[in-house]
């Protein structure tokens, strides 16, 4: 397996704050890797170290097998898209996209061809003469992408590229970035705090917290088997309860189901917990029910069940319910 980039024992310390704490990370070639986590988890700091804007306090970073820890950004051949897009306001779209090629002394004719090629890839060839200010947010984003791609970088780095777009455009751009990644075959590193974005776009996802990597793997591996409570919470597992064996487990709201009745139902293929409805939130298709219950360790827990509204039992606040916890969906958690 070839590596597009590799972090070995990398830390970044600002005064008495450790932003990145001794991480080892391998970015696979030709794939889209996301760095995912809440703000302050060290994901952007890691990206900036990879791009060369920050020198690591400790550790080494290699790009395409070459130690690049001390290489300045202009010598790294990486394409970066900034959260603010960072388009040069005094240059036209074509000049923006051609800037990196100009720095590489690519002859004018060749430059023009590659600018057009990059702009066609993002569907903006017709706007090449415009100034960035005249473009919409989505268009500026595409120009920033074209500018990064035009230099044929070793890696494409995207720092929260979709966070400044409205919801509809964001969904559209996810597919667009995937398409561009597939067409160019580039290794892409994308920083985001949005788990849906990471799940939908990644070949590989890296979850971070407090400067450390919590879990890494393909979405299909990570999502069904979160390694610890932090990862589970971040991926939307709402319910945490101790099983009869004393281990902490989690289960997603849509896997719980509720019944009403005097008698405790049989707990085939799982367990049943008794509880009282605290709150109901009607969401059209779904009905979200918060239930106060007691788990096997005797601790009081609040469970969230996500039911199909049309098939849900008749519930009001204070209704006594049985919460069914199917064993097949229970995920055991390790560590903190």
């Amino acid at each position: 397996m070839t590596h597009a980039a590799q972090f070995r024992g990398v830390s970044q310390v600002f005064g008495d704050f450790t932003a990145v704490d001794d991480i080892d990370l391998t970015i696979p070639d030709g794939k889209l890797t996301t760095l995912l986590g809440p703000s302050g988890c060290g994901k952007t700091t890691s990206l900036r170290m990879l791009a060369g804007y920050l020198a690591p306090t400790h550790g080494t970073i290699s790009i395409a097998g070459v130690d690049s820890t001390r290489t300045p950004p202009e010598k790294r051949d990486l394409g970066m898209v900034f959260q603010s897009y960072a388009l040069f306001p005094h240059m036209s779209v074509a000049e923006n996209v051609g800037f990196g090629l100009k720095m590489r002394r690519v002859p004018a004719a060749e430059r023009a061809r590659r600018v057009t090629e990059s702009l066609e890839l993002v569907g903006l060839a017709h706007l090449s003469a415009s100034k960035p200010k005249k473009l919409s947010g989505g268009q500026q984003q595409r120009v920033a992408l074209a500018r990064a791609i035009a230099i044929r970088p070793k890696l494409l780095l995207l720092d929260e590229p979709l966070s400044n777009l409205d919801a509809r455009l964001r969904i559209q751009m996810r597919a667009e970035i995937r398409r561009i990644q597939a067409e160019t075959g580039l290794a892409v590193v994308l920083v985001t705090h949005d788990q849906d974005e990471a799940l939908e776009m990644s070949d590989e996802m890296v979850l971070m917290k407090d400067g450390r990597i919590q879990q890494q793997g393909a979405p299909q591996e990570v999502f069904p088997a979160p390694a610890n409570r932090f990862v589970a919470e971040f991926l939307g597992y709402e319910n945490f309860l101790t099983d009869p064996g004393g281990e902490l487990t989690t289960i997603r709201p849509e896997h719980l189901w509720l019944t009403v009745g005097e008698q405790a139902p049989s707990a085939s293929g799982g367990s049943v917990v008794s509880g009282v409805v605290l709150d109901l939130a009607y969401r059209g298709v779904d009905l979200l029910v918060t239930v106060a219950a007691t788990d096997a360790s005797g601790a009081r827990v609040e469970l969230l069940a996500d039911l199909r509204a049309e098939s849900a039992p008749d519930l009001t606040q204070g209704t006594h319910v049985w919460v069914h916890v199917p064993a097949t969906h229970v995920v055991p958690l390790t560590g903190d």
């Binding site: 791009a51 900034f82 959260q83 960072a86 388009l87 005094h90 800037f99 720095m103 500018r147 230099i151």
Partner: peptide, 27 residues
């Protein structure tokens, strides 16, 4: 001036001096 604009120029291959004269100064 968004400092990311200067970072972007560096990332695209411009030296610190080149970045100052072709990006910072005009802005």
């Amino acid at each position: 001036i968004d400092p990311a604009v200067e970072d972007a120029a560096r990332g695209l291959g411009a030296s610190a001096g080149r970045t100052f004269f072709s990006i910072t100064l005009p802005l």
